[in-house]
Design a protein around this nucleic acid. Structure first.
Lengths: 327, 327
DNA sequence: CTGTTAGCGCATTCAC
DNA sequence: GTGAATGCGCTAACAG
């Protein structure tokens, strides 16, 4: 790999001259510029971005870290983030936190490779995030509430309220019982939705039954298994609240296999409003998260911090009930 | 931001000693190691990954560049790529080529920021790719056939054949006419599927009608518009071949709006077999691309090149008809 | 205008 | 074991 030094030598100029010429600085005479450019082309010269970033102490890239690249991608979120990031002349890279703390996330959280990160990955622990924050390196956390560092900003959806609204909707529609399929126990999102579920139950004078509270791990397969379990238990609830849409898809499958009709025999509601939701049969009633808006805000806030303007330490969004045909 | 120098100073040792201690080299005495680690912790020291990569002249990361992060993400592809990349101890970052040649792609294609790239982005021109290849920097191109450089490897799906099979299937099922909705004109994928379409038509003695050949730009909206156009034209074909599933989704919508029944009044077939396909109503018949296998091979090949083992300059996969209910 | 030079933060000889 | 010195490729004073 030829370096700028090789280019300079070939063009018969000093390194700095080559550098200036390459970056289009106008203080270089036209003819010398040509010479340099020609030399660069002949050698097939490629600038080393790493060296540049190191020198400038700035990468002009933002990382978006997701727990799973292969899941139903939050494309709305990405769109929100990407728009502003590109507009600001920055680049966006997205990577996975798969593999916990030995994962790619470490590289980008710990080792100064981007100018900031937006994090939506429940498998990374709070303490790790806190240990990664530092002056001038903002971390925007999207799925929980992390305090104690001015460089960590939390953006959340009001999950307790969302869980409440979902459960309340079911009960108001006359359902005498509602089961809850949760996400992983370390997910604050899931736990909060559960809290809302509990609150709604209480307000309506219903008692939570542990046999109707199962873990579905936020995955389609998990939702399928949990629903199967529910079915095998014999007595079915009149409705199920899945803590995310993916699990609801699995649930729908399990129900169909047992020829239990939705919404005829049982009502189900999801959470998130993923792209697929309207295409399911029946189209899934769910709690919509304003993903685009969240992405937009996340990127907005990250640049605020980068530009050293004061921001709040946390933001919150509300969810919205999207009525389709599964209830 | 404290550097290793600060850590060394604080611990009262030389920089190299600190470096050794931090990276766990056993030639450092236990007690000095403790001192260094303590100093690092007190200062909240973070290694600068850029400096390290620069020094080592290796990033241990592979970039996957997609034309659009916000589209229906090829999650199977990513899964295939990610598995091997992680296994090899590398990291994967994915970024978008949105914005053409002023895009993020440039940064990763041109400026030595990763050890190689896998590219699926029809909006990047061949010449740009060829100009980016260099010794020891493999580029795996997934949506076309690029020759002339040992560091560029093409992996393709046999689109001509796929287009043929799709069209042939429709005709064999008794359809007297089949319309074709294409992708962007610069997409080799789309053009090849079109060729297959033409071939099949010819083999069955049908003549392509220009009014039944429309551009849908590979997007849902494009497919919707193209189908609308088809409808407004008056005379409808007995079947439509959408060059990708996304456009078929849009088409399904347009058809539903005009109360044209699928497959009752018209048959439609897509291409790709995206995650959503089985959930559409009716479930979409389509040509499946072995996305997981492609991803797997792409990552396999990239490491082959990195390890300087000889590889073929191009690979090819076949498509497979997935019969569902839209025909 | 152009060239010399000093780092950016780190890993790595090579002496001691 | 430890420390001083060197260089990865590049930019940006500063000097000419």
């Amino acid at each position: 790999m030829p370096t700028i030094k090789d280019v300079a030598k070939r063009a018969g100029v000093a390194v700095s001259t080559a550098s200036y010429a390459l970056s289009g600085n106008k203080k270089i005479k036209g003819s010398t510029r040509e010479k340099v450019l020609a030399a660069a082309k002949e050698l097939n010269y490629r600038k080393n971005g790493l060296a540049m970033d190191l020198k400038k102490n700035k990468t002009k890239t933002i990382a978006l870290i997701l727990s799973d690249l292969t899941g139903p991608f939050y494309s709305e979120l990405i769109r929100g983030v990407q728009e502003l990031v590109l507009e600001k002349g920055y680049d966006l890279i997205v990577c996975s936190s798969y593999g916990d703390e030995s994962s790619t996330a470490v590289k980008f959280l710990r080792e100064t490779r981007t100018d900031g990160v937006i994090l939506l990955a429940h498998n990374i622990e709070n303490s790790f995030i806190q240990g990664s924050a530092r002056e001038g390196f903002p971390i925007i956390v999207l799925d929980r509430y992390v305090t104690g560092d001015p460089n960590i900003i939390s953006i959340n959806v009001n999950n307790v309220n969302g869980g409440y609204k979902a459960t309340d909707y079911l009960i108001r529609n006359g359902k005498k019982s509602v089961a809850f399929i949760s996400g992983p126990s370390n997910s604050a999102d899931s736990n909060d939705r559960y809290k809302g579920y509990l609150n709604a139950l209480k307000d309506h004078g219903q008692t939570p039954l542990s046999k109707w509270i199962l873990n579905g791990n936020f995955t389609q397969e998990g939702g399928y298994q949990a629903t199967k379990m529910l079915i095998h238990q014999g007595e079915m609830p009149e409705s199920i609240f899945f803590a995310n849409d993916e699990m609801a898809i699995g649930g729908l499958e399990a129900l169909k296999e047992s020829e239990i009709r939705v919404p005829g025999d049982i009502s189900i509601i999801g959470f998130d409003d993923i792209q697929l939701a309207p295409y399911l049969s029946p189209p899934l009633t769910t709690m919509r998260q304003p993903k685009y808006e969240i992405g937009k805000l996340a990127s907005h806030v990250i640049f605020q911090v980068l530009e050293r303007v004061q921001v709040k330490e946390s933001y919150s969004f509300d969810t919205e009930l999207v009525e389709r045909s599964s209830c």
